[in-house]
């Protein structure tokens, strides 16, 4: 059965490193068949998410609502590992 995992990338419109994190999440979510979404802090939802998790730097990555990375993960493997760990818990 498909595991319900959501990767959320918190971004800002002017952040040059955010597209790297988004591209990475796109690849990893495809490879592991999980969902991902980009949430900009320029939106109310993004700002609320950032405040809720105390995020003051972007990109940041939430996996199933838990703060997993602040900054771009060093490689796809690191993100994939964190997602797989979450998959074991759901």
């Amino acid at each position: 059965m498909r595991k319900k995992v959501l990767i959320q990338i918190i971004t800002s419109p002017t952040c040059p490193y955010c597209p790297l994190a988004v591209e990475m999440a796109e690849r990893v979510s495809k490879a592991l068949d999980v969902d991902f979404e980009e949430v900009s802090v320029a939106t109310q939802k993004g700002l609320e998410l950032a405040r809720k998790h105390g995020i003051m730097g972007v990109p940041a990555i939430l996996i199933n609502g838990k703060l997993a990375f602040e900054g771009v993960p060093p490689s796809d493997l690191y993100l994939a590992r964190a997602v797989k760990k979450e998959m074991e818990n759901v």
Binding site: S12, P13, T14, C15, P16, Y17, C18, V41, A42, G54, I55, M56, G57, V58, A60, E70, G71
Partner: peptide, 13 residues
């Protein structure tokens, strides 16, 4: 990442 930043372009908003 909790208020200290090296990138105003990224974190300004």
């Amino acid at each position: 990442g909790k208020g200290v930043s090296y990138c105003a372009t990224c974190d300004g908003p």
